[in-house]
């Protein structure tokens, strides 16, 4: 797995969600206010690379999880908690779950997560 760990092998190419270079995250940059909390998050691109690494290592389910994570990387926390809450037992109707799935797909371009929610609804 030649590109793993990405933090070593692709340090020059990795970007933070705000587009900052990975290797420019330094303590001085944090202290001067150049790096914020939002820079210390994973990007959809890095998650897709990790998914590929997991798939090549023979772990398709983990790869699938990382691809769903790539979809969620840009979804706001509040909506993530809404989806989670809807999936818990006895919280909502099948119709409401299908609505949540539709919203994941149309509004957040998250078809894999939408498929998981539809599957949970029994469809």
């Amino acid at each position: 797995m030649t590109q793993y760990p990405l933090s070593e092998k692709l340090a020059g190419e990795l970007r933070t969600p705000s587009g900052r270079r990975f290797d420019s995250i330094t303590l001085d940059a944090v202290l001067s206010g150049g790096v914020t909390r939002d820079d210390l998050r994973v990007t959809p691109e890095a998650l897709r690379l990790q998914a590929e690494i997991a798939r090549n290592a023979g772990r398709p389910q983990l790869a699938g999880n990382l691809l769903r994570a790539a979809e969620l990387a840009t979804v706001p926390e509040e909506f993530i908690l809404t989806v989670y809450e809807a999936l818990r037992p006895g919280r909502t109707t099948r119709e409401r779950l299908l609505d949540v799935a539709a919203e994941l797909e149309s509004r957040y371009n998250a078809p894999l997560c939408a498929a998981l929610v539809r599957e949970a609804s029994g469809s």
């Binding site: 760990p5 990405l6 933070t16 997991a54 290592a57 990382l66």
Partner: peptide, 8 residues
């Protein structure tokens, strides 16, 4: 940022 520690 790299997601490296998400691997098994």
């Amino acid at each position: 940022v790299s997601g490296d520690f998400l691997q098994t």
